[in-house]
Simulated assay, not measured.
Amino acid sequence: MDAGIYVYPWDVVGDPAAAERIAGLGVGHATVAAFYHATRALTPRHPAHRVIVAERSAAYLPVGSAWSGLLPEAQGWVPGQDVFGETASALAGAGVATHAWVVVDHVDGFDGPHVVNAYGDVYPWALCPANESVLEYAVGLAAVVAERPDIAGVEFEAAGWYGFDHLNQHDKVAGIPLSEDEQFLFSLCFCPACCAAYREAGVNAAQLRSAVRARLDATFEGRVGAVFDADLGDAVAAMRGRVADRLREAMVREVRSQRSDPGFAVSFHATPRPRVSLANTGLDMATLPSGTSGVVVNCWKGSAEPVAASVGHGVDVYAGLLGIRGMGGDPDGLARVIGDVRAAGAAGVRIYHAGLAGADDLTAIGKALADA
């Protein structure tokens, strides 16, 4: 079974015991953050600190002026110029391969073309992939990681449409629950590039904006609104699918231009429901670009259904599992869930998260993988 676990560079850099501890879990590789959004993370075992605050989206490996246009800034909260490389080197010394964890369109503190909703509100946490500069940015990220000799694969997160739903410190947006359809409408972008794409798809952007606002205003005002036109929704979803497919195809093409070995893994965090705009990007499994080797689907709730809904499209499906009690996971039940997802067709698992997990969680993760 192909088992991997997620790791931040700050979990390993400065902790001489970290790599061996990760190797002791029985994983084949660790997926290490190379480009990552802002976060506040507990480091329960590190000898030098207990909390890391990553203030913004950042690169954890050297980028310099690798391409023109949008560029990620270097991180400044972990000592070192290439903390990704230091992490990969330490893991290699313990016999653990490294995959690069690349977050694409989910950003924080990043100046670029962002999603603009039907009300004109900007989502500064979401880059809009309909913009050429965002496409260039995504391809640049792919190029920088692909040329690294210290990785055996790459996982792209939020590679497509990222929308309204955004885990953020002190979020105050849960007062009115939105259905999946309403989340889709609230995530639609009306930036100039998207409006041009709507026109090319035969969709009147002004009429679409009015329809979206009318449907959402009904929810915000506590009344039943008119049913959103299904044909219009399908046309918009098709346009967004083409935009996201173009982004993923360009990224995979860039990676494979440098790493043609089929053993080099190229995976996307995915949801097999195309209208979803989350870190596990909604996509049509049938349109994944040639050269993609796998998808990671979210099974944090312990269900194998996302795996069952994703298999059968010529790529490996990996179940993303939550191994942290404090985040609602059930590490003691991981062995059962691993059995369920494998029975549903999963080629392996990706466990979140080696650095954030408590001591008991790590013991349970190691036991579950040994049992599997």
Rank of each mutant, 00 (worst) to 15 (best):
R21N: 00
H49W: 11
L25W: 01
V83L: 00
L71R: 15
V63I: 14
E73I: 11
G282K: 07
A54W: 07
R246C: 06
R325D: 09
P124T: 10
V122N: 07
K172W: 14
G291N: 09
D105L: 08
D231K: 12
P149A: 02
W101K: 00
F186Q: 13
T43C: 08
V255F: 08
G339I: 11
A368S: 02
A205Q: 07
A100M: 05
P62E: 10
H49N: 10
A34R: 00
F228R: 09
V134F: 10
G160W: 09
D217F: 01
W101N: 02
A368C: 11
H106D: 08
H114E: 10
Q183V: 12
G14M: 06
M1F: 10
C128L: 13
A347W: 02
A34Y: 04
T39P: 07
G76F: 05
G95E: 00
A174N: 14
L188S: 09
V115Q: 07
K301I: 09
G24E: 03
P149F: 04
D261N: 05
I351M: 03
F84R: 01
A196W: 08
V104K: 00
V144L: 07
A18W: 09
V307W: 12
W300M: 13
G69K: 07
R336F: 10
F156V: 03
A118M: 03
L334H: 00
A159H: 05
R350S: 11
R259E: 04
T31I: 14
R45Y: 10
M1D: 14
F184P: 12
E249Y: 03
S293N: 07
E254I: 04
R273S: 14
H46Y: 01
H106I: 06
P262A: 05
V317M: 08
A142G: 05
V32S: 02
R213Q: 08
V13N: 06
D2H: 15
A158F: 04
R213M: 11
D2S: 13
A19F: 11
R256M: 04
G345A: 15
A66H: 11
D234S: 14
C191H: 02
G241P: 02
H37P: 11
G233D: 07
H29E: 01
R350M: 15
R253S: 12
I22P: 04
A211G: 04
V27M: 14
V32M: 01
G69W: 09
A94K: 03
V154E: 10
A230P: 10
V203T: 01
H29L: 01
L322S: 04
I351W: 06
P272G: 10
E305M: 07
S89E: 14
A206W: 12
P177W: 13
L288M: 01
P72F: 05
V224G: 03
D105R: 13
W77G: 09
G175V: 12
V27E: 03
D332G: 13
S57F: 12
R223D: 02
R336A: 12
A235N: 09
D111H: 10
A368F: 06
H166V: 11
S187M: 02
Y162F: 15
V252C: 12
E254L: 00
A286M: 03
A308W: 06
W10R: 02
G323F: 00
V224W: 00
V296P: 00
I176Q: 13
A92E: 12
P62S: 07
A368H: 00
G328V: 04
A206T: 13
L278Y: 13
T363I: 08
